[in-house]
Write a protein that binds this DNA or RNA. Sequence first.
DNA 1: ATTAATGTTCAGAA
DNA 2: TTTCTGAACATTAA
Length: 279
Amino acid sequence: MPELPEVETMVRGIRPFVEGRKVIALRRCRCSCKPIAMTPSFSSISRRVKGKKVTAVRRLAKRVVLEFSSGDSLVFEPRMTGLMLLSDPPDEGHLRLELQLDGKKTFNSLWFWDRRGLGTARLYSAETLKTELGPQKLGPDALVITAQQLRERFQRTQRAIKVALLDQKLTAGIGNLYASEILHLAGIDPTTPANDLSLQKVRKIHSAIQTILNEAIRYEGSTLGDATYRNALNQSGGYQSKHLVYSREGDECCTCGKAPIQRIVQTQRSTFYCPACQK
DNA sequence: ATTAATGTTCAGAA
DNA sequence: TTTCTGAACATTAA
């Protein structure tokens, strides 16, 4: 589940305890489930990472990037249920990878925990990172893209605006939950073709993206229902109590009070919105 | 007890 | 070319 705000929260949580430390060893965990999918293999990643210092921890769209002194980057993709943890996993059975860190500090390992097991870890050299996770793969980050860029990109597609917001090539970082929240705040009908939106409406969407994502980061992400999202210390996020439409089918709209929130399905994903105040 | 649904991504097909 | 579907997997709600 982790979208931009959750991944940003993970990065901020682990950064102070991981940056500047060397990786002593990589260990696949003694969990009964299958190990995390890795490219290249576990042993060759181990070889290239062991003894190297983590020079930076950063977010790339919905991915967590550990940069090494060698120039390599180890990139974790949490997909649906992956977490980066310093301690207290929700259970021992879904710990899939451990990076042991040097020095004797508060935390001596960084863990990748993943209940569903769809998450991945991939090691890139500086060059392959640029070509394989570059602009042809990921559009400008949702917190960086300008209203003008958004407008140009929306003009190029006739997909529904909700579907377009999920396209990581168009803009990167927005997922299913925040797409609904963003369009609600912007007052836009999620089924509107992206290329039919006026510049004024695109500006509203751009502004709502900034507002919603920054607020969600401030509250350390959303944890609800099936979503097992937790921060680096296995604590829940706080933004779920701020959701205006997501997972609120049938509730009276808290924005206009005129209609119940509706759930529709677009390209097999749930969208929540208020038919009265989103036009 | 089955079945449907779950926040992501990607390959392959329409 | 653009857009959509199904699968990867594990767990829960219906």
